[in-house]
Amino acid sequence: MYKILRYSFYDLIRSKWCYIYFSFYLILSSVLLFLNNSLAKSIITLMNIIVILTPLIGSIFGAMYYYSSKEFAELLLAQPIKRNTVFLGQYIGLSLSLSASLVVGLAIPFIAYGMLISSEITNFISVIIIGVVLTFIFTAISYYIALSNEDKIKGIGLAILFWLLMAVIYDGFFLICLLALKEYPLENFSLFSVLLNPIDLSRILIILKLDIAALLGYTGAVFQGFFGKKIGMLIIASVLAFWIIIPIIMINIKSKKRDF
């Protein structure tokens, strides 16, 4: 598996999409720092972008990479290798290369700006970690979607639809629920619904980290109380881990089926 992972990783690292993705983040973070003139504000803006964009890119790339490297995968499958190592290797290679573009692209301008000696370093690191985790989650899901759909258009379409569901529609549905149930105490309900969606969870986590929580009134206090504790952090970490592990297990199961 390691060999396939390495091969996928180097293959992607050399591809032009990877460079485009890398330079996008490079330019984005340089422009943000240039325009905002402050690390703290840049990190907040960056967070807004990362929470939406990394899942989208992960979704599109995951599906696209599967379809474009399908022939190569078929070739590999003719060799005496386990089926799931081929697919898992490809998935991990892809996620790693996307994460590498993200991390390096963001880190260079911020380090050049003097982030390492500022107090914002922990916030920056948490933004980066969240970006990487979201990349892993959404790449896995779209890879699974691609694996289960022969049709390229359908696969990419479903992957984007899933992103749309998580990034936009879920929040809309959540808001409708809140409106419908507004006579009831809703702190625990909102806490629970945030836990179910990795994008919302990441957004709240960063908002709390960046200390805007106190501005959120009573609900903010409830969230701070929950996420501030060790057990809360543990729950978040495990929820995010589940979001990676479950699609991987599904990829595993799917890849065992010998339909090509």
Binding site: N48, V168, S190
Partner: peptide
């Protein structure tokens, strides 16, 4: 308020 800064 939990939806603060959300895309939706």
């Amino acid at each position: 308020i939990t939806l603060h800064r959300s895309l939706f």
